[in-house]
Design a protein around this nucleic acid. Sequence first.
DNA 1: TTATTGTTGACAATAAAATAACAGGAGTGC
DNA 2: GCACTCCTGTTATTTTATTGTCAACAATAA
Lengths: 233, 233
Amino acid sequence: MDSEKRISPAVINRLPRYYRYLGDLLESDITRISSKELSAKMNITASQIRQDLNNFGGFGQQGYGYNVEYLYNEIKKILGLDRLYNMIVVGGGNIGQALVNYTNFEKRGFVIKAVFDTNPRLIGMTIRGIEVHDVDQMEEYIKNHNVDVAILTLPRSKAAKVAKDLAKWGVKGMWNFSHVDLQVPDDILVENVHLTDSLMTLIYKINEMYSEENELNHLANGLPIKPIVDLED
Amino acid sequence: MDSEKRISPAVINRLPRYYRYLGDLLESDITRISSKELSAKMNITASQIRQDLNNFGGFGQQGYGYNVEYLYNEIKKILGLDRLYNMIVVGGGNIGQALVNYTNFEKRGFVIKAVFDTNPRLIGMTIRGIEVHDVDQMEEYIKNHNVDVAILTLPRSKAAKVAKDLAKWGVKGMWNFSHVDLQVPDDILVENVHLTDSLMTLIYKINEMYSEENELNHLANGLPIKPIVDLED
DNA sequence: TTATTGTTGACAATAAAATAACAGGAGTGC
DNA sequence: GCACTCCTGTTATTTTATTGTCAACAATAA
């Protein structure tokens, strides 16, 4: 809409969180909030909140704070959540099916229109009323229906080729659950959800914490470092 | 293990990605790789790769590069993937079930041992051989089995209380799929997977790209800005 | 009215992260 | 064995992100 200065990715990643907290406040019938109060709730500095919001405009008022409903709706507009988006799921396995069954997406305006798979046992079935088609029909479907987002929940080996096709046929973005980094043209947007990576970082942090704890014990009482036991027994 | 300097979160988040790429190289029987080559594959600067790896030690050799297998195994150790981890799933709904059925976690050493739910229709059932228990039994279970990670896939409303209990009973970390930020003691680690947030940022970026494109068209040929059509029809 | 308090938006200061530069050891080819 | 190239580990620089501060102004109370 406006060309202005570029918004940093760090800010964009925080927007949905603001949106969520403001939604909660709205539900609690809180009409106004200051950056300081929000700061306490969200564990972010008030300064950062003000600066983040100011990237998009001056939504607050000195001596008053921010009007919750107004700010909520502004962020909604900024995120583009004031319209509907068509999505397709490519790969009807566990995760694909779980996402189709997850009805909260629809409440936000993200509508899953179709599922595609290669498995003959799935093709023709419906999941929550949404039909599973043969992947062979995908080209035609995408060319005839405006598909905003393709959700990729397929095996590593197949993801690369499918992504290339999807890009060619005209989806705007991909939400990628496959455990690979997709190679797509610059004008196609990819958001990765690498679950295993996320779990691995959690494991790293757990180990780090437990080794620190051992060190502290060690330093504090002069005892030898307690070994971390292997849990598989 | 060693107290040294603290590793920045940005680096830790990249580790699983290195691990993945090195695994791929290993499968392709590539025995050595330079930071420059890896840089090209991963779309990271070579400088950053060297600096990231050097946080953990000098794994490379001047004039040679990095030995793929050696580096792979070192990162494996750094991430703590050289042992097994016990996990439980709290919430046996769509996503919980999908995660139980996702067998790749087990290949990495992440073993789901039990599922807990309140739904009487689920309790007693097994998913991929893993039993679904009543949440009432969770305290006893956790106290008698060493649970490293609890996977939270339950509704917003219930997540906060369950998290508090889990922390009290002694899980080390939580992998949180619920759409709330959990309030837990400092020594419990939480890794959030906020799917809706992730999708929202994708949507933001798509809209940003399309509005930019319109601007460019506009500037280039003097035509009026093309409206973004609403897709729901 | 007038004083006092609260709170933003702007900007300055600091911290963190990413990139670049480079010295020097290790391999390679002759 | 020697010259030459490659490529790391490390330090320096640049960029990006976060936090702190304050003048200006709104709301509220006196």
